[in-house]
Design a protein around this nucleic acid. Sequence first.
DNA 1: CACCCTCGATAAGCAACGCTGATACGGTGC
DNA 2: GCACCGTATCAGCGTTGCTTATCGAGGGTG
Lengths: 288, 288
Amino acid sequence: MDPHLLRTYVTVARLASFSEAARELGYTQSAVSQHIAALEQDLGAPLLTRRPVAPTAAGERLLEHAGPLLLRLDAARADVARMAAAPEHGLTLAVAPTALGPRVVAALPAAGVTLKVLAREEVPAAVATGGADLGLVDGLAAPSDPLRLPDVAPLTTHGAGEEPVCVLLPASHPLARRTGLRLGDLVDARWLDAPGAGLPLAHLRAAHGGAGFRPALRYEGTDLCALTALAAAGHGLVLLPRAAAVGVPGTAAVPLVAPRLVHRTELVHTGSPRGAAAAVVDKLLERP
Amino acid sequence: MDPHLLRTYVTVARLASFSEAARELGYTQSAVSQHIAALEQDLGAPLLTRRPVAPTAAGERLLEHAGPLLLRLDAARADVARMAAAPEHGLTLAVAPTALGPRVVAALPAAGVTLKVLAREEVPAAVATGGADLGLVDGLAAPSDPLRLPDVAPLTTHGAGEEPVCVLLPASHPLARRTGLRLGDLVDARWLDAPGAGLPLAHLRAAHGGAGFRPALRYEGTDLCALTALAAAGHGLVLLPRAAAVGVPGTAAVPLVAPRLVHRTELVHTGSPRGAAAAVVDKLLERP
DNA sequence: CACCCTCGATAAGCAACGCTGATACGGTGC
DNA sequence: GCACCGTATCAGCGTTGCTTATCGAGGGTG
């Protein structure tokens, strides 16, 4: 189970083609064919059907493992390399769109920061693999409960603030005048599914303990403005932290009153932050 | 970052010796030396000090990554192999000591089951790497909150029951006659630290949100009887699910009333259980 | 229906890798 | 000072893993 073979396998599976994968990886088609053959022999099961190229049941299984595995591998390499490298100048901060509130903006130093807005699930990976020095992730949680993050690597997390959540409705929506909404009343509403930018519907289902929350329109991207525009146009409801939800033209932001959920944002980093990173950490963690 | 090199590295770090590691792995000392050199060159940083052999800062870091990585690798291999292998006859069940309640015992089929009692944190790993077909893990949680399990692999979990937790006290203890105890009152008591058999003190600290719960005696093992005997002899308090705590000679089991915590047990397995495993799953999950 | 073109499997050749065995080097204990 | 233990290094050799070349099976086209 050489990581190289694994990498080849996921590439082949993604592109559904040996030759394409070979081109992308800089190998010959022959080498890719041998890689897959080696993997299949090693594991004792066919992983791909040929013509068309598609994963078998066992192959699907392997794909689920391969992603996190390769990610962890990168994380380990980056983590160790970071210990040896010269102390970096310039600070890179990875944030999920809804995690970038006014407090965060205020805490940034005047210069020398690179800000990366990534989809929520990519933030821990970016921090782990060295793409960013600090990360800010957010999500729905019961008050004072920590978030559930994918453990791509041993990361340190600190709570960096909690905020009420609001449902963003078009101003003309029948519920827009309410002063509070219950999640249970919105199970059958049309929702926007925006795993990158908004709060994932899966969180809602978990919080409500059941099915429902059928997506009306799926938005792939990390631009909060695009998302709020969609919501204003009536394409579906979105759940947002209050700071992001209030003041959007053409919409009303109604607080969610039940269940008691908060928008929690957490600061994540590897090891102990040094230099400029440490200063930002301190500033973000001091209680207002 | 060949897994072989990684495996060699962790072995060397564990045994603090190149030669010993070579013996254990079936290599020559020369090969081990070359492995480590290759890793260090690849990562661009020294990982071990020689004479004495001990991990450097970067090496410590790598060690934190290496364990989960190798575990995941094993899990992936086992998972795929399982899909190809003949349907196993005989069912292996891995359980944490305190997860083995009367309901579980009742749900087992009359014959053909192998039961493995493992330390709590080893159960998911055993299921993932194919050492067991099903696992039962337990822990402290707020009512209806899922447990936080290490994600060694994509595992499916189901809640399999919740139960009140009790503090196990020697019968002569001043608090033994109480009808309920608050966790806050016990922060400074003497506790048994039994990460394998009892509920880990770290869970208590997390639930209480602070330090305290200093361990008086540490018990490494998975025998619940040994643990209760220690508690009866006054070596420290233990938190146990009610079923395990009541009826221990020489002790009193006092329910924990605050914070509202339950002992939750969850069933974990990979993919979809087949044959005998499916039957046991059904039986464990049907609401009593 | 014959043709070609694409895509994956297979064979041969060659360079690089990774292991072993032998040896050099640097500590430690007697 | 010498023997001993443990790691680093070197030469040699078998194996691995890549490339180039070729084959065979489908699918589309004139």
